[in-house]
């Protein structure tokens, strides 16, 4: 693992993964969107509105997955002081914030016709909103310090403390009475989604996952190059 803490090694690895990730993303996005919007049946209760689920659910999964990537990177950064780990957290945060916003917006748009309201302060919705603010706070800390090292340390600590919110999001629908429905896929006793809807959902989730890999690697490369550039500039000034 230490080998990839070397930026040049990391860039080489990223360049090898990227074309494959882009291919997976393109294929699964086209197939997933076709199946989700055209190739899958309407729901027995929700009718055609169920199609929002194919965006909403993968976005919500990725919102939590990206947070775990960010928190994992922060943990490695604090314990082993890998410079790349810090950059990984910084690279992941805006992607996670976007997924979270997408989950909140699509959920809200689905909620109006189905529930009769855009928003209720129930356990699930509130904890996901907190997740969104954790991402924003993490990014704000990175921008708020002049000293990159201090910024990275402070942001990493926030990311780690915020991990508490992840089980709260997942189990909010079981621990408390919420308007949001309980889990349909990752639950005891197996999924409660018909197979003809479950497959399009998984394909869309694959597309979202591949999208994350692509944008994450691009942003990592960008961060590494920016670091290199600022080192070069300093070398010019002081050298």
């Amino acid at each position: 693992m230490h080998r990839f803490a070397n930026p040049a090694e990391f860039n080489r690895l990223a360049d090898r993964i990227l074309p494959w990730a882009i291919a997976v993303m393109a294929i699964s996005l086209v197939a997933g969107l076709y199946l989700a919007l055209i190739g899958s049946p309407p729901d027995y209760q929700q009718g055609e509105s169920v199609r929002i689920m194919y965006i909403h659910v993968p976005a919500a999964w990725m919102a939590m997955f990206t947070y775990m990537v960010m928190a994992g990177a922060s943990f490695v950064a604090i314990v082993w002081r890998h410079p790349l780990a810090e950059l990984a957290g910084k690279a992941a945060a805006p992607i996670g914030a976007t997924f979270t916003a997408l989950a909140l917006i699509t959920g809200s748009l689905w909620g109006k016709p189905m529930w009769g309201t855009y928003w209720q302060w129930d356990g699930r919705m509130t904890s996901v909103l907190v997740l969104f603010f954790l991402y924003l706070g993490y990014m704000a800390i990175w921008h708020g310090f002049d000293d990159e090292e201090k910024a990275g340390r402070a942001a990493a600590i926030l990311a780690l403390v915020g991990v508490a919110n992840i089980p709260i999001i997942k189990f909010s629908v079981d621990w408390w009475n919420t308007l949001h429905q309980p889990a349909s896929v990752f639950r005891m006793g197996g999924p409660t989604i018909a197979d003809s809807m479950l497959w399009p959902l998984f394909i869309m989730a694959t597309a979202f996952q591949a999208y994350f890999v692509v944008v994450f690697l691009w942003r990592m490369k960008l961060e590494i190059n920016q670091r290199k550039l600022s080192v070069m500039n300093r070398a010019e000034v002081y050298g």
Binding site: P41, P42, D43, Y44, Q45, Q46, V50, M53, M114, W115, G116, T117, Q120, L179, Q181, P182, A183, S184, R187, G189, G190, P191, T192, I193, A194, S196, M197
Partner: peptide
């Protein structure tokens, strides 16, 4: 004063029985 509908965890095509 207000009534909101709650959706359950079942997703299934029309005319089929929900799993749960």
């Amino acid at each position: 004063e207000t009534v909101l509908a709650k959706h359950d965890e079942n997703y299934t095509p029309p005319g089929t029985a929900p799993k749960n």
